[in-house]
Structure formats: structure tokens, C-alpha cells
Design a binder for these strands. Structure first.
Lengths: 208, 208
DNA sequence: CTACGCATGTAACTAGTTACATGATTCA
DNA sequence: TGAATCATGTAACTAGTTACATGCGTAG
């Protein structure tokens, strides 16, 4: 569905799609080229998209895929079904849950990595949200060029809303990680390490 | 690793593990019995856990799995590696991104489902966090019964921190969905429907 | 004696990752 | 002429889901 939705805005080659999944939409949905190429073939077999051969250079050609009417119908059908939100699996939260097995140092590093990760995402997402608002993205220009003002408003508004949610999420994650670091510091202090003495991990108390 | 961590707190049968994955840990990690049983066999082959046959009734037996020393080492090794946080795929956000293809009604239902989902999670998580804090869970009692006060503090503190994060997350999602509903209402109003006239989906403007 | 919970599996399938491969084009 | 980028694939593998199956124990 992500492939269909993107191609609907602008016909593309598999390569361009892969690039696109790498930046713009990357943090909502990802796909590698090894997944995209077979998927394109499948969508073509189902009559939802169509490949047009385009020359590149003298010898080579490339396949530019565009959405067919049946593909538009499929998109609309999909969009009009409510999906139940679901619980993601989080390898990271799982680890934090059992962080008493780790040294204080590693526990702190884990939170720090979390903080840095979402700080970077915050910046990236904020920039992308701004581009969206200004209609600055390639795809938005294509998507909106022959839409009514009213329709454009909706197209934009939903996407901006998604990014606002992502930004709040990032902020929340940053706060959580910061509190996590403080927690580790507190535990470390409470462990009552005498000066000049390196604290052992709490898990080592368990072993013996 | 989830299986190892749980079994370390208390030896269990595959069935009990499956139950456990259904409630307590369910929103951090899930696993169905059809995944658990083969996994237990695999962990046993690797020497990380060991099955003890226990009678149940007269004829039947059951396998209770317990963590072996090698399993403890493996847990410690795992916990002491920082995992890079990662970008989940979100089918729901993907749909909201392209919600201009849906009717206003479905768009609103999607946000409403999101709100209700996280409201329920909020209640469930809050209850579980409270149980954790009071040491009210079965597993916590086992886990802590022969630990030092200091070690217990860490065991508890990390888990509580995870649940506090989940609660903030749920709150954030509820707010986001509520704003989403308001957004749909606004778009609907701006679409300028005359009284007594049913609004078409914005996507239908695109088609033709 | 019946229903519900305990207990344990397998099979078929879908999705996704990582690695292996290849070749043309374009720009410095 | 070499490196970066465009372009397109396949193979092997891991994880996870859904559905199919079976049978004992226990309480009412």
C-alpha cells in the first residue's frame, strides 16, 4: 500500500522508490530494494500498476511504474478500512525491563543512545514537517498540482498531523531517556560506593 | 531473551510462558505458544535452559523449564550490549498519512479507535505499574525473594521506569488522536457542506 | 459427563533482512 | 579511466502469524 500511495503521487522506477523509502517516509515505513522489486512485479501482475519502459543513455532502459485505475480503487478500499492500532515489539524496552543484568555503565549508555537517537529524529522530523507545510517536497508538488484548494488542505493536514505526532513522540522519548539516565545515577549513588572504589553491576550481587 | 529473562525469575512450562506473554509483558513483547514451544526446544538444545518432568494427575507429565548457568551468562551478555533504538513500522500511521483517500467518517473512526485503544492500555498499564511498585506480581515476589534490598531497588526501578514511559506514551497517543478527531471535524466544516447535505470524501474530488 | 482450562505440538504461509550479483551511466 | 550513482535483480535465511490438531485434568 505504501508503494501504491507513493506511485500515485508520482510514477517512479524501483530505484527511486527505494531512495524514497530511505528518506521521506523512512520512519513510518521502510523497505529495501530487495523487497521493492519483487513487490512491484507482484503489483503489476495484479494489474494495480503498470510499467513503462523509458530510455536511459543509448543502450539501457528503465521501468517507470504508474498506478492504474484498479490501483486507485485498491488504495481507496484500503484507506476506508479502519486498522486496529497495535502494540509494537520493542527489543529496546525489553532490555531496559531487565537492565538489572547490565552494569550501571551500560544501562546509562543505553539511555544515552536512546536520547541521541530521538534527538536526531526530532531534528529530521521537524525539518520534514516544515517542508511539508510549505509544500516544499517534490512529491507534494506533484500530488497537489491539479487538486482543488480544499482537497489540498486535507492532503497536507493529515501529513502534518502525523509529523506533529512524531515530534511529540520524539520529545517524550528524549524526556524518558533523560529521566532514565538520572535513575541510573541515583541507583549508582545509592549503591553506596566508597570513594575511589568502582561499583560492581547490581546483577553480580545475584551471582555466586 | 524474553523467554530466558522470564524463566530466570521463575521456572515455568511452555503453557505458563504463553499465558505470561499474554498479560504482563504483552505490550513490550508478544509471543504465541506456536512460537514458544519450538523456541524452548531450541534453547534447551543450546544448553541455556533445562526441562524437568513434573507429574500432573496420574498419567500426564509436563515440562518445567529452568535457566541453566550458561543461560544466565547469555542473559548477562545480552543485557550488557547496547541495542540501537529503532524505527518501528506503523501500518496505522501509514494509513493516516494517506487518509485523504478515506471518507471523513472513516478518518474520524480511525482516530477514535486509536484513542480508545490507548485509553484501555493506559488503564491496564497504570494498574500493572502500581502492582509492580507494590511488589504485587507473582514474578516479582519470586525474583526478589533472595535479593539484597539494593539489588531489589534496581530490579524494580527499571521496570517502573519502563511503565512510566509507556504511560506517558499512552497519554501522548490519546492527545494525538483527540487532536486528529478535531482536525477531521475542521476539514469537514471547511468543506462547506450546505445543511442537510452529506459531505463526500475529499478523495472523490480527485477522481474524474 | 461435559465443558473449560492445562498442555503441547506441527504446517503452511507472509514479511522482512542480509548478502550476493551484475551491468550501464555520468561526471571529474 | 575510475569512482559514484543509477538500475535491477536473486538466494538464503529468520521471524512471526494463522490455522490445524490432539489429549489429559478437574470441577460442577
Amino acid at each position: 500500500m505504501a508503494v501504491l500511495a507513493i506511485l500515485e503521487a508520482k510514477p517512479m522506477t524501483g530505484y527511486e522508490l527505494a531512495k524514497f523509502f530511505d528518506h521521506s517516509i523512512a520512519h513510518i515505513w521502510q523497505a529495501s530494494h530487495s523487497q521493492i522489486y519483487p513487490e512491484l512485479k507482484k503489483l503489476e501482475r495484479e494489474g494495480l500498476i503498470e510499467a513503462k519502459q523509458q530510455a536511459r543513455g543509448n543502450l539501457a532502459t528503465k521501468s517507470v511504474y504508474a498506478v492504474m485505475p484498479a490501483g486507485g480503487d485498491e488504495l481507496e478500499r484500503w484507506a476506508n478500512q479502519v486498522v486496529p492500532p497495535l502494540h509494537e515489539r520493542s527489543p529496546e524496552l525489553l532490555k531496559v525491563m531487565y537492565q538489572e543484568w547490565a552494569s550501571y555503565q551500560v544501562a546509562e549508555q543505553q539511555f544515552e543512545a536512546h536520547r541521541v537517537y530521538y534527538l536526531q529524529l526530532y531534528v529530521k522530523w521537524a525539518a520534514h514537517a516544515e517542508d511539508l507545510r510549505l509544500g516544499n517536497t517534490d512529491l507534494m508538488r506533484h500530488r497537489l498540482k491539479d487538486a482543488s484548494a480544499e482537497a489540498s488542505a486535507a492532503v497536507l493536514a493529515y501529513k502534518v498531523h502525523v509529523y506533529e505526532g512524531l515530534l511529540e513522540r520524539a520529545q517524550m522519548e528524549i524526556d524518558w531517556a533523560t529521566k532514565g539516565i538520572a535513575l541510573v545515577e541515583r541507583l549508582l549513588a545509592e549503591a553506596g560506593t566508597p570513594p575511589g572504589h568502582r561499583a560492581a553491576s547490581p546483577s553480580s550481587a545475584r551471582r555466586r
